[in-house]
Nucleic acid binder design. Structure first.
Length: 430
RNA sequence: GUGAGCGUAGCUCAGCGGGUAGAGCGCUGGACUGUGGCUCCAGUGGUCGAGGGUUCGAAUCCCUUCGCUCACCCCA
């Protein structure tokens, strides 16, 4: 038996409805704020990710799905979304459109990693980029759109963790400072951090090992070396967040893994999953477009991990999705063809219908409707057919009455399903 | 890349001091010929992850391998 490749998943019904609903919500909210969807390739030239994400990052270092095509070109399955959007922006000269441009995307990303809870080799991200706006207003708008999205999904308790990473010269200076600070205490650091001290001292700041954390808390932060410009920029973002009542928390040890970030960086963690489970990460990347050979235009954006988001979706949203009323239409005897006609009529009126085409007995059909937690069953037998009615049964109460076909849509209007059926997880477990 | 745990029916698992593969749930049907949920009955379902070894005989003991999961690193 052939199994799915490691790190991929089958998203089965009814779970797939949640994914659809999350994506529909994203389209609606993002578009309401003036963003438009961009679809870019799932794979790009390897060089794009090496140059944008950064050569020293783990993503490029050891997590890319890189392969040579038949002509020997090096291609890579995209590990994140921003690089492709930036490339498409430049390639299609979108800087000649009215700026800023708000672009959003959703789709699969790929990273070659060992499997773990909430971590996949193929996972989905929903992201937004605002290109061509240097103002802190753009950073704040990003977070505003993000939180309106969360709000529409029913989240109540999410908090943004926010930091200033400074401008590029500041980052270099901070690296120096941190090396000077940590080197005398190197013996106290974990072995990973001793390595980080050489390669990327910023990463020591968010190590989870207690002894490292203790040191990190006393280490100099970006504030010590950041220029006035970046400080003022992030302070203004904070001011706007307060004004908008978006809950945030300044975290001076927050460091993001991608090299292109400057100034504002942020992430949102799932409260019930502990501090390491990031469901959204983002920040400002003012140098990225220029580094890719384009005009010197700023950008800011975020990406939400859809897999993790679906995992922690509030009950309210799940219930709304699974509670959608559907009519189960059961034909008896020779009424099957008429049932299909009736189903077409109802669907055109906006009523979702399942026709029982299994040819089973009424008893079996009712049993099935009950298993599916359907509320309404319409029985169409010879007698009903002759009178152009159905027997409409309400499975919640067991009540049943005859309803003419023309009034069926109206009789069902506003009806909710019964409590959602319990279902299996995501198909990712075996 | 490092460390740990686990692989028996579609799902959750029992069986492991070697002796003919089990239960619950699910699915299908029946008891109840056009009326669900509860109950009862029947049916359906498995190269015991794979390969090798020990043995008269292995799901069970030994070795190898593959797969899955969790943690670390890092991230969505």
């Amino acid at each position: 038996m052939i199994q799915r490749p490691r790190g991929t998943r089958d998203i089965l019904p009814p779970e797939s409805r949640l994914w659809h609903a999350v994506e529909a919500t994203a389209h609606r909210v993002f578009q309401a704020f003036g963003a438009e969807e961009i679809r870019t390739p799932t794979f790009e030239h390897t060089e794009l990710f090496v140059r944008s994400v950064g050569e020293t990052t783990d993503i490029v270092h050891k997590e890319m799905y890189t392969f040579a095509d038949r002509k020997g070109r090096s291609l890579t399955l995209r590990p994140e979304g921003t690089a492709g959007v930036a490339r498409a922006f430049l390639e299609n000269a979108l800087q000649d459109r009215p700026l800023p441009l708000r672009l959003y995307y959703m789709g699969p990303m790929f990273r070659y990693e060992r499997m773990q809870k909430g971590r996949f080799r193929e996972f989905r991200q929903i992201g937004l980029e605002i290109l061509g706006a240097a103002s802190p207003l753009a950073d704040a708008e990003c977070l505003l759109v993000l939180f309106e999205f969360f709000q529409a999904l029913g989240f109540q308790d999410l908090v943004v963790h926010l930091n200033n990473l400074g401008d590029p010269p500041d980052r270099a200076a901070l690296g120096h400072c941190l090396r000077e600070f940590f080197t005398p205490h190197a013996a106290q650091l974990c072995s990973d951090c001793q390595r980080r001290l050489e390669e990327n001292p910023l990463r020591v700041l968010d190590c989870k090992v207690p002894s490292c954390q203790e040191l990190a808390h006393r280490a100099p932060t970006v504030e010590a070396v950041a220029g006035e410009a970046s400080k003022a920029h992030v302070a203004e973002v904070e001011e706007l967040l307060r004004r908008l009542d978006i809950p945030y928390q300044r975290n001076p040890r927050l460091v993001r893994g991608l090299d292109y970030y400057v100034r504002t960086v942020f992430e949102v963690v799932a409260p019930q999953w502990g501090p390491s489970t990031v469901i959204c990460g983002g920040g400002r990347y003012d140098r990225l477009l220029a580094d890719l050979g384009g005009p010197d235009l700023p950008g800011v954006g975020f990406a939400v991990g859809e897999d993790r988001l679906v995992e922690i979706l509030p009950e309210s949203f799940r219930n709304a999705v699974f509670g959608e009323a559907r009519l189960q239409l059961v034909p008896l005897g020779g009424a099957s063809a008429a049932a299909l006609e009736l189903a077409r009529k109802l669907v055109r009126q906006g009523v979702p219908v399942d026709v029982e085409v299994g040819g089973r007995s009424l008893k079996a059909a009712l049993k099935r409707a009950d298993k599916l937690r359907r509320r309404w069953v319409a029985i169409l037998g010879e007698e009903e057919l002759a009178q152009r009615v159905v027997s409409l049964r309400d499975l919640t109460e067991g009540a049943q009455r005859l309803v003419p076909w023309e009034q069926l849509a109206q009789a069902l209007a506003g009806g909710q399903n019964r409590e959602p059926a319990r279902h299996q997880g995501t198909g990712s477990q075996h």
